Simulated assay, not measured.
Amino acid sequence: MNYASDPIWWRLRKTIVRDLASLLTAPSPWLSSTELPVSTLLGDEGFRFLLSLDEEPNNLYLFLKQHGAYHTHLGVYAERLLYYWFLHAPHSRLIAHNLPVQDNQRTLGAFDFIVQLNNQIFHLELTCKYYGGLPEKTESFIGLNKADRLIDKMYKIEQQLALSTKPAAKSALKNLSLEPNQLQHASIIRGMLFKQPASQNLQVPLNPLCWQGQYIENWSEFEFQEHYRFHVLDHLSLISPVRVSSNAIVNFNQIKQIQQGMIALVQQHADGYWHEVERIMKTTKHS
């Protein structure tokens, strides 16, 4: 699935609002029985709220500035954006964020979010990951950091969602006037999967309908056309399809020097900006 072609990207212009929208609406890279439905996360008025944020984003910019320390870590940036959403979305009431669970002064973990959405109270865990591999081998999918493995993250999310079942969690929840059995547990899994162009479709438990890109170990594998233009993505520009100005565009001779990284293939639209149409994960050959 090419999530970059979703009509939502024709309406939203500000990068931080586009990133927030992607966290709310993007399909999960792998299938999970605990994934929170997009309709529950977005809410009935959510798209209108995103449009209003795109028109007046100053409060969101200020919030990110006040809750800093995200510039070096994509996961923290994503968490801050959802933190803002749960504080301000019309159907949401944030109960706790990053709530630690301790047992005899030993930290067992932390709840990413405890939030009421409409009339339901959720314990939510967020992850935002980018993996490339062979569609028929779930265990082959890894990140640019080869120690970052999809199967490990799948297991980690399950562990995080089970935190409220630990006896020590009862005390933390009691301080919020909650009992463990009041919580529903759900994941918010975002990111992309990358596969080689000629490979077969993704296999379960990977999500065949997730946002997908090209996985390339050698630039000779890439079917280049003369009119192609590109934008090199930094670590904080991965969450949503990019929309950039002409001075951020490079040609193929420039990007083929990249040994490892993320690159967006872009086309110019009527608004004068260059919009992502496909994404490439370039890595060195895995041993």
Score class of each variant (00 low, 15 high):
160 Q>H: 04
155 Y>R: 10
157 I>W: 03
127 T>P: 00
159 Q>W: 07
141 F>M: 09
152 D>C: 09
132 G>N: 01
128 C>F: 11
133 G>Q: 10
133 G>Y: 01
153 K>P: 04
140 S>L: 10
137 K>F: 12
151 I>N: 07
139 E>G: 01
134 L>W: 03
152 D>I: 05
141 F>W: 07
161 L>V: 09
125 E>F: 04
149 R>K: 12
151 I>R: 11
146 K>D: 05
153 K>L: 12
148 D>K: 03
163 L>E: 03
129 K>T: 09
141 F>R: 04
144 L>P: 03
152 D>L: 13
142 I>C: 11
137 K>N: 11
131 Y>K: 07
133 G>H: 06
129 K>W: 09
155 Y>H: 08
153 K>D: 08
157 I>N: 02
149 R>L: 08
140 S>D: 14
145 N>C: 11
152 D>Y: 13
162 A>N: 11
137 K>C: 08
149 R>N: 01
140 S>W: 06
129 K>H: 15
143 G>A: 00
136 E>W: 11
128 C>T: 15
161 L>C: 10
160 Q>A: 02
148 D>W: 02
165 T>K: 15
138 T>P: 13
150 L>R: 14
151 I>L: 11
144 L>W: 04
159 Q>T: 07
148 D>H: 03
128 C>K: 05
129 K>F: 02
165 T>W: 10
139 E>C: 06
141 F>K: 05
138 T>G: 10
135 P>M: 08
156 K>M: 14
149 R>Q: 13
158 E>C: 04
133 G>F: 04
154 M>Q: 13
164 S>H: 12
147 A>K: 14
162 A>F: 02
156 K>Q: 13
158 E>T: 11
164 S>D: 06
159 Q>M: 09
136 E>S: 13
155 Y>E: 13
143 G>R: 04
164 S>F: 01
146 K>Y: 06
162 A>H: 08
150 L>W: 03
156 K>N: 06
149 R>P: 00
138 T>E: 13
141 F>E: 06
153 K>R: 14
127 T>I: 05
158 E>Q: 15
163 L>W: 03
145 N>Y: 03
136 E>Y: 13
154 M>G: 01
133 G>W: 05
133 G>M: 02
138 T>H: 11
134 L>S: 15
160 Q>Y: 04
129 K>M: 07
139 E>H: 09
130 Y>S: 07
147 A>I: 06
136 E>M: 07
150 L>F: 07
143 G>P: 00
126 L>V: 00
137 K>E: 13
145 N>F: 03
135 P>I: 08
165 T>E: 05
156 K>V: 02
140 S>P: 11
158 E>Y: 08
162 A>W: 00
159 Q>G: 10
144 L>A: 06
150 L>I: 07
142 I>Y: 02
154 M>S: 08
131 Y>S: 04
156 K>L: 15
146 K>W: 08
151 I>M: 09
163 L>R: 01
152 D>R: 07
143 G>T: 01
151 I>H: 09
152 D>H: 10
164 S>V: 15
155 Y>C: 14
153 K>E: 08
159 Q>D: 05
127 T>H: 00
164 S>C: 12
162 A>M: 12
137 K>P: 01
134 L>A: 13
134 L>R: 15
137 K>V: 13
